[in-house]
């Protein structure tokens, strides 16, 4: 399955870096889903659930504020707080 490079960072640490197949995050204007080969994109994040699909599984997380940045096929989530729900 096609994938893209995903990096999730918070001010405190690097939460995730690696390949992902899909990510759904809540922006200030509603949920947005990023798939591979997305065009360059920039948006501000609201508070809500994030769903990241990697290794064929959906991983849910609690994501608070920040930015979503897609540049050259690489996706960066810069969040104030990002916590996996399944205790990863």
């Amino acid at each position: 399955m096609a994938s893209f490079h995903l990096k999730i960072v918070t001010p405190e640490s690097l939460v995730y870096e690696g390949e992902a197949e899909r990510i759904v995050v809540r922006t200030v204007q509603g949920d947005v889903c990023i798939l591979p080969r997305h065009i360059d994109y920039l948006s501000a994040l609201g508070d809500g659930e994030a769903r990241v699909t990697y290794d064929g599984h959906v991983h849910k997380a609690h994501c608070v504020g920040g930015m979503l940045h897609v540049a050259g096929g690489k996706v960066e989530v810069l969040s104030t707080k990002f916590e996996w729900m399944d205790g990863e």
């Binding site: 001010p11 405190e12 922006t27 200030v28 204007q29 947005v32 065009i39 360059d40 994109y41 920039l42 948006s43 501000a44 504020g65 920040g66 930015m67 540049a71 810069l78 104030t80």
Partner: peptide
């Protein structure tokens, strides 16, 4: 500048939204 960059909402509104995060990051750093 990337001309193809899609910003939601527009640049000015986006800046308003991300500025606190950015500034907080700078202060924390």
């Amino acid at each position: 500048p990337r001309t193809q960059l899609l910003m939601e909402p527009g640049p000015a509104a986006l800046l308003n939204a991300v500025m606190p995060d950015y500034l907080a990051g700078v202060l924390y750093g």
